[in-house]
Design a protein around this nucleic acid. Sequence first.
DNA 1: TGAACTAATTAGATTATATCTAATGTGAAA
DNA 2: TTTCACATTAGATATAATCTAATTAGTTCA
Lengths: 141, 141
Amino acid sequence: MDVDAIKRTLEGSGLRCTPQRYAVMAFLMEHPKHPTAAEIFQAVNRLDPRSSRATIYNNLSDLVRAGLVREVAVEGRAARFDAKGMRHHHFICDRCGNVEDMEWYDVPKPASGSLGKRVLRECELIFRGLCTKCAPRHASR
Amino acid sequence: MDVDAIKRTLEGSGLRCTPQRYAVMAFLMEHPKHPTAAEIFQAVNRLDPRSSRATIYNNLSDLVRAGLVREVAVEGRAARFDAKGMRHHHFICDRCGNVEDMEWYDVPKPASGSLGKRVLRECELIFRGLCTKCAPRHASR
DNA sequence: TGAACTAATTAGATTATATCTAATGTGAAA
DNA sequence: TTTCACATTAGATATAATCTAATTAGTTCA
Ligand SMILES: [Mn+2]
Ligand SMILES: [Mn+2]
Ligand SMILES: [Zn+2]
Ligand SMILES: [Zn+2]
């Protein structure tokens, strides 16, 4: 991914392109594996400049707020993060908690009557079950 | 809700009907407001018998594992729990994190090809946006 | 009945995750 | 250069959930 493209993406959302923020965004774009904050922290600090834990969390929440990154809450585990590239759904493994991308398809929106005065931002479709690695141990355990 | 019905529900899932487990299940069925573990802990302990925090968590995970209760992870907040009664979707407020029930409708399943060797258990549709209480402060802030 | 076995509960310690604080640094603009 | 808002930092703190080891309760069966 192009350095300037990331820079423009950040600035287009009103976020300064600091080295730390750039590192988080670039890492997420290059590693669409839904890393946790702790994994991002380790990865971006393998190279300079060093980012503190607080900065990782601050920047992640800035990026989520700006709509550039999606946060995926997984029951009983650390949240995972995902640069919003092409639209897609997620499959979350019941057993290992891994989050995997699934081909996108349109989701029918709720009847407007059932929304009342709520303001709908998005519909998220999550598939649950056993991932390829965990499915074999299905019967056992 | 009938005491015996809850008892039969638990035993039908292979779970002993202990006073503590009964209290959790009954509370969830009587209060379909998606309480957190801490809220359940407080509520069931207002009456005897007293349940410890560990027991609340143990029983919640037993109930989830048995398929009687659904756990809803909300980013940055405590998990919420929901007795599985009638099928429904959820609306989660971006601002206050509240989880609200939404009328159920059928969700198109993924093309079987895109599942690969994964084993699908369920499709969960989550709506996000601002709840009725938070929507008015929309423009401001 | 009552041993023996198993499941469940308990208090409190511990872990994991995330946020807060207050001091310091940085860069753009005036 | 001064100023100011934004950003970063280390470490403390808060919150959520799990673990541990001891105990209690329920079940089975001789
Ligand atoms: Mn993804
Ligand atoms: Mn519900
Ligand atoms: Zn898995
Ligand atoms: Zn709200």
